[in-house]
Write a protein that binds this DNA or RNA. Structure first.
Lengths: 154, 154
DNA sequence: TCTGAAACTGAAAACCGTTTTCAGTTTCGC
DNA sequence: GCGAAACTGAAAACGGTTTTCAGTTTCAGA
């Protein structure tokens, strides 16, 4: 689900929830962010539109929004708890380790990997969490590195 | 790198570090764990062999061990900061969402997925973090579910 | 052996992000 | 209007992690 306020209003209403001014401010703050944002960053950004907003409300709203699938939590090997808008399609995030810029990519075929894991471990696998990190094109160029499209997994 | 004390002693020595009794206790505690363990769980377990061990030392040691690659941090969409021994080979972890049991699987071909991401996003991808979760065979049976080897990605 | 330097330690305090509590406010259906 | 329920922010509580600090252990070299 994307961050479409109307759509979210409807989803909220179906649960007896309301899209208040404060929640709207939180939503906008995440939507406008070009990179993943932490609760405190959301708080700061949202307060520009809604100065009386409290941090408590930010936490509660982020929780709600990720519950209904409007936001996605992103984690890295070292840091936790940042949020990005979730696109409509199922996707995974790629985070730039220099500038924090996040993009999603959807053209992924994890099924083969998941199947291999099932075969090898006997687990019934219900979820996968994949996050890629590296360097975005802009940072790559800034660092004077010619774009070379090769990746190595860790 | 596996949790081979001799190997770790050598790696430590190369950095001017020592594998003390306390560090050894931490190492053993993680090695013996059949599931991922949090710092506090390590603390509790390690104290059985080394009662005067402090939590500070546990944190410092876990940090050190994961720095040299002897441990792997595992994260899930909701929780953070647990550790498992890293196997010698490059592998990913599969965590049972019922009992916390962790296994690694190594027969993974993430390259195709990474390549697709590179093509689609233009990022130079240097790391990937993949974690699968689901139900281990034991929990599946305990829940009266016949083992069916199919997975669905999230 | 001593000796000095550096690594290492645990307890306590500090820190910091998150959650809970609580009393008050807003919204909505009637 | 009115009452119920959703919602709010401030402050307190909470819990995990990191820092500080003074003391201990280890090790290389004299």
């Amino acid at each position: 689900m994307a961050l479409d306020a109307d759509q979210i209003t409807v989803t909220f209403a179906a649960r007896g929830l309301r899209l208040t001014r404060q929640r709207r401010a939180v939503l906008d703050a995440v939507a406008e962010a070009s990179a993943s944002v932490s609760p405190v960053q959301v708080f700061d950004a949202a307060r520009e539109h809604c100065p009386e907003l409290g941090l408590t409300t930010v936490y509660r709203t982020l929780e709600l929004l990720s519950e209904i699938g409007a936001l996605r939590r992103v984690h890295g090997p070292d840091h936790c708890e940042a949020f990005v808008p979730a696109s409509a399609a199922h996707g995974h995030t790629v985070v730039c380790s220099r500038c924090g810029q996040v993009v999603e990519f959807t053209d992924c075929d994890m099924q083969a990997v998941v199947d291999a894991a099932v075969r090898q471990t006997g687990y019934r696998i219900t979820e996968h969490f994949l996050q890629l990190s590296g360097e975005c094109p802009a940072c790559g160029e800034r660092a004077g590195r010619p774009q070379r499209p090769a990746g190595d997994g860790a």
